[in-house]
Nucleic acid binder design. Sequence first.
DNA 1: ATTGCGACCGCAAACGTGTGCAATACGGCG
DNA 2: CGCCGTATTGCACACGTTTGCGGTCGCAAT
Lengths: 381, 381
Amino acid sequence: MLEKERGNAAQVALGGAGERARRQPLRQPSIKDIARLARVSHPTVSRALQNSPLVNPATAAKIRKIAEAAGYRPSAVARGLVTRRTRTVGLVVTTVADPFAGEVACGIEQAANDHGYAVFLANSNADAECERKMVQALAERRVDGIIVTSSRVGSDYLPMLAELNVPMVLVNDQYPGEFVHSVMIANENGSRAATEHLIELGHRRIAYVGDRSGYQTETERLEGYKQALAAAGIEYAAELAVHGDGRPEAAVAAMDGLLKLADPPTAVCCYNDMTAMGAMRAIRTRGLRVPEDVSVTGFDDLFFAKYLEPSLTTVRQPMRRMGQMAMENLLKLMSGEDSVAQVKVEAELVVRGSTGRAGANPGLKVETGGTRASGAGRRNG
Amino acid sequence: MLEKERGNAAQVALGGAGERARRQPLRQPSIKDIARLARVSHPTVSRALQNSPLVNPATAAKIRKIAEAAGYRPSAVARGLVTRRTRTVGLVVTTVADPFAGEVACGIEQAANDHGYAVFLANSNADAECERKMVQALAERRVDGIIVTSSRVGSDYLPMLAELNVPMVLVNDQYPGEFVHSVMIANENGSRAATEHLIELGHRRIAYVGDRSGYQTETERLEGYKQALAAAGIEYAAELAVHGDGRPEAAVAAMDGLLKLADPPTAVCCYNDMTAMGAMRAIRTRGLRVPEDVSVTGFDDLFFAKYLEPSLTTVRQPMRRMGQMAMENLLKLMSGEDSVAQVKVEAELVVRGSTGRAGANPGLKVETGGTRASGAGRRNG
DNA sequence: ATTGCGACCGCAAACGTGTGCAATACGGCG
DNA sequence: CGCCGTATTGCACACGTTTGCGGTCGCAAT
């Protein structure tokens, strides 16, 4: 009864056009509100605001002015409901606190924003179960597309993708069948270039500190390392290939293990810059010097690489650009194109101060100021 | 006419319960679809799926099973439209590629996720105009709340907040009037502790390398530095307080300027770790050593601080925790509570290897292994 | 004067869900 | 046998927007 009365009151308020809504003090004005104000129907308002040629320019201008004055903001959720497109994408990532993910996310967000898309952030914390839940949640939000970086679930994506029917692109993780789209760095070439660089400096006993095994990037970078060894006629020694978890803490332990070997390495090729940072710490803790006693290479070229002491020789990934590319490919996918498939971007070796000639004294002393030299190794191709 | 016929066909298909929808092959099943399958009305399905006690447990179970089998995913956008709450928050940040922002974002995302909220990521690129646009866009998406970290617009928020009528909390930026809610680090205390630490080590000529001036965190940290000087009877020298932009590149230049002074500093208190990283580079480039020739302190305790060489003495912010707190406060605000206002979290000085006793030789040599010592300075309070 | 046409506008339906209320069924009680 | 309370379900509407289609009006052509 009370309810009914409220309903009637609303009806009355709606009838009187000059009357401003008073019932819900803190409601955003709707398209109908400003239609009433402009004394037109709400479809006309809708058309006016999207610059439809179907509406008289004069009334359109008037409507726009009134909408502006009323502080009207169209509801993306209502629009999404009827158009069945939310102009929204999901970004799932192990954690945005990871510098690599942060850079990629930045590129994605920028490209998305340029095209009027908003991006949902979802941390998987490197947990497969959690990652699956995230993708499900994104599907409920009716995102138009999904980008996953450095996935931890891998083979479960295929069925999920089929079920969800949502365009999806992976960055730095790929899926064998050519069903899933992706943008990847040239892991093998990059890792091979780094290792070749060490070999050219005279190193023969070269170690590799990887991520947890089983993920594609890890596998490929290890493979590049092996290729370079093989090409130089150096036998691959399993004891020299150890695993961390992609973060400095684990790398310290892994590197320390290598240094305790009877015949320790004089150079180490690391899975990424975080690992390299940990490796350098372990080396110094044992009283050894970089690069005089052991040379170190990284992968990624994160912002801190050139500010380490010595600055880090590493393989550069154009992370932000890769994020952009992923988003651009996703846009194509969402608009129906199906041709993008998977793109591979070239890696670039950046030689700095953490690598030196084998033997006690630094023969080739690259200036430590963070200057970037073009890759000494062969260009991948 | 044709339209009518299609309408009839749909009606027929809807009547035949056994018939699976064939007209729209790639449409997500709606609540009505599974209502038809379960031979109940769609409100019953809605109630069953949200465990309402109003529905018979047996039919509820049956409905859930059918929904599960059909791969039904409720549409958050439709739900948001009717409930007027999207369970969505916006996070605007200068850039997620910044490690500080990344950590905060991580904490926010986690807390949001725990409570069933999704977060929109919006980079402002430190541009006020862009930041305003972002907030507007978020309002159109009908977010339930907004978190802004390290804002660059400041005074424009008040009117926007009033107009948008969306709960909002700022992290590490605050607004004078007690209208805006915020969570902040104790900038003055932290910066003062760092400076006091340098003074206790015997330094008298202590420089400060800040961010661009005008932002609150910068002002407060500079203020803490001045307070410590004053308390020790050291006169503040304007030539020793210079500005970078919070990133290493600018810090290199700023620090280099300091070192060219007739009477250069023997210690430098930096606005944040990124700045400190740049300062260390500048010091080394001039052939000087850290900390023997000049001591350096940072602020933030980013992940790389303990892996620099030497490891960085800095003021720790519990960044992830601060993100969580911001989100939790926002949750309270969104549920109607209005009591949170602004919280200030304590900063903690972490002494490592980049600070040493004034004079050529390192007197107090903290172990370089990244071990964390409790603050030598007085605890702020 | 009727017809036709183009410009402009409103009607109504739809998107998928939640919810107040009425309706129905059923069992117990007087 | 009638009445009432309770459990369960369906009806109808709402949320704010888009869009196909039909309607009105003014004007030129027949």
